[in-house]
Simulated assay, not measured.
Amino acid sequence: MSKKLVATSALCALMIGCATAPYQAPQAQIDAYFDNMKISPFVGEVEHTSHGKIKTTDKAYVTDYDQCQTQSFNEQSFLFGTREVKDPKQLTQFSDDYIKEVLAAIFAVRSGSGSGAHAGAMAATSVSTGTPMQHTNYNQYKKTIFDDKQILSNIKGINDLEAKTLECVKAKGWVFVADKKDK
């Protein structure tokens, strides 16, 4: 989980730097994104002296995580166009969705199916439409809220609050199993 935060910060800087022209997402696109957002739980394993090794979706961990997230985010709000968002779950999901977008771009570039800022969008378009990447046209690419630098400026603040959440969870005795293997 902590690796996710580092990767997001680095990828955010990379993608913001690669944009060719400023894009301002229309408010309707922003609203549609948040209105249709599906909150996906982080799936992994954690370990605790009292609970042993469990999934991050188990109640014991979720209870502590939710408590830490509420405490860390402390009603902090972020502006997306004119929409104010302060729900920590939505803010964290926005960050997670951004990571998915960036990873799609990286995989598209690595597979030779595109380059630059449009590669991720081409990959996302390919996945959503079922069109093979080699048949995807740059002109078909529809910019998303993840192409709006002003909106992406929220990523660092969200990630900082998520880092506080993870510090709180760690203070409660939870350790991510993947983090233990890295040591």
Rank of each mutant, 00 (worst) to 15 (best):
T129H: 14
T82E: 15
A117D: 14
Y141C: 06
Q24G: 05
D87K: 00
D31R: 01
A19K: 05
K89L: 11
K38M: 12
N36K: 03
T82V: 08
S95R: 09
Q24L: 08
S128W: 08
K183S: 15
S111R: 11
F78D: 06
S128I: 14
V109D: 06
S126I: 01
G52K: 11
V177A: 07
V46T: 02
D64W: 06
K86Y: 14
I106P: 00
L166T: 02
G114E: 06
K86S: 14
I54Q: 12
K59D: 06
M1E: 15
K183L: 15
K181H: 10
D96H: 12
Q93L: 06
I106K: 01
D64Y: 05
K3A: 13
K156H: 05
Q24M: 10
K89H: 09
G130A: 05
G130C: 09
L5P: 02
H135V: 07
E101I: 08
P41Q: 11
D96K: 05
S77V: 04
Q67W: 13
D64K: 06
K149C: 14
K164G: 04
F80P: 02
Q67Y: 10
S126E: 07
I158R: 05
G114H: 02
G52N: 09
I54F: 06
Q71Y: 13
E84H: 11
A123C: 11
H51T: 10
I106A: 01
L11N: 13
K38Q: 14
T82Y: 04
K38Y: 06
I39P: 05
F94K: 00
Y61L: 04
T20E: 11
Q27Y: 01
M133R: 03
G120W: 15
I106C: 01
G173Q: 04
A10C: 13
A10G: 10
E101V: 11
S111Q: 08
I30D: 00
N137F: 03
R110D: 14
Y65K: 13
L14R: 15
K180C: 11
E84N: 15
E84A: 13
C18W: 07
S113N: 14
G112D: 04
A21R: 05
M133A: 12
F94C: 01
F78E: 09
M15V: 08
Q140I: 06
K3F: 02
S77W: 04
K53M: 14
S2R: 09
D64R: 03
A178S: 15
W174K: 03
P26L: 01
I145Q: 01
A104S: 09
P132N: 12
H48D: 08
I30T: 00
